[in-house]
Write a protein that binds this DNA or RNA. Sequence first.
DNA 1: CGCCGACTTGATTAAATTCAATGTCGGTGG
DNA 2: CCACCGACATTGAATTTAATCAAGTCGGCG
Lengths: 235, 235
Amino acid sequence: MNSEGHLDCRHCKNRYKSLFCDLKEEEVSVLSLGKACKTYKKGEEIFIQGTPPKGIFIVNSGKVKISRLADSGNEQIVKMVNSGEILGYRALLSNELYSSTAVAIEITSICVLPRHLFFQFIEQNATLAGALLKIAASDLKQTERKLVDLSQKTAKERIAEALLYLKEIYGYEQDQSTINIILTRGDIANIAGTTRETSIRVLAGLKKDKIIDFIGKSIKVRDFQGLVSLANISD
Amino acid sequence: MNSEGHLDCRHCKNRYKSLFCDLKEEEVSVLSLGKACKTYKKGEEIFIQGTPPKGIFIVNSGKVKISRLADSGNEQIVKMVNSGEILGYRALLSNELYSSTAVAIEITSICVLPRHLFFQFIEQNATLAGALLKIAASDLKQTERKLVDLSQKTAKERIAEALLYLKEIYGYEQDQSTINIILTRGDIANIAGTTRETSIRVLAGLKKDKIIDFIGKSIKVRDFQGLVSLANISD
DNA sequence: CGCCGACTTGATTAAATTCAATGTCGGTGG
DNA sequence: CCACCGACATTGAATTTAATCAAGTCGGCG
């Protein structure tokens, strides 16, 4: 396996199980035959809302946002993705056009597993299908929680939760307190389902209350517990 | 197969594929061994948020709402379920407590497939796992759309969409225009993610604009296209 | 008959969006 | 080197939306 296209479980740092962790060696090598890897620049689109899916994407390195755009130009971020995760399986499974757009947040290396190979694998490999089911179930839970939050929580609670979410996905930097991703205020707003202005105001408030700090363009969590209680997590 | 526990595809009326449509005859009979059926009265709980899942539920007849309750007592309906659909697979798959509560909207007959049989089946039967994957993917899409709607649409648009959603799930009565389910204004509000009062006001407005009518406790769609354009559906 | 739950309506309030203006920072080209 | 540009950030004020609060009505049922 070359450096561009690892499928090795040891590299999966976050809580999402890598889809291919359970595969045997020979299966991995078969899998890698069909792969095509590509590097995306910051801001580059990996797939676009309304286009047909060609395969699934395996994020090798980098960070991706998946968002839905309304006609109004309004953007809602549906999911943030880190390296080791898979991308775009939803539309493929239900055989529909992409209902969201994936954009690289920073320079990102991604491998494509073409549609036919993907289906071949899940048909032949029950473990794989099971792993995918778990990923789907996890995604569904996440999304349901966001749905409920959006209808029941204040903008402040949602922003706090968005920060916790980002910490969960991307973790901290070496200092164990700075969230390991750089986003614009607008992106944070679009995760929390609010506007840039409120996101700015709420974040400024959190800084004043010594819950967070701004380190350059990054956000440092000074009071994790404070953030948790602000976010009002129920489950 | 007794009258209580059909698993026959012909009875699945709505757009959700029944999980067991693709099973062969002998598989169906094995499946039915582990089944326990039960009838739930209106308002009765099928499973409860925070409790561990025992199996999956197959809705034989009746109607169910799945909702999450906040500590505040606030309720958000995550999904409405009709007969022929399965229930409660999410928590089972990710091996977690239920994150939502399922309540019968009307008298409802439900079969339980115990946990171990469920897992046995999806491990042995790739078709079944595939079908479940499709259901999960479809649910995920639905939920993502609701999420985006909640953050981008007005209460009026969301109520209109809720009505279309109910029509989609439950269909019309014989008159081809009355939505085949009876809900309180509060329930409609909880689907649309708003309050009882706004739901009442918006529905009254729709009636005045001759988009809908109230037939007893049911809602009749007088101007479907009007409803669609109000709902501002993008995809 | 009286109560309960659901429905309705109006008035008030709070939260967050929208609008508008200004500020900051990094890069680019003369 | 410096002026300018563009993207993003910030702040204040006005506005809008929908939630909340507060009565009062209706219909069925014990």
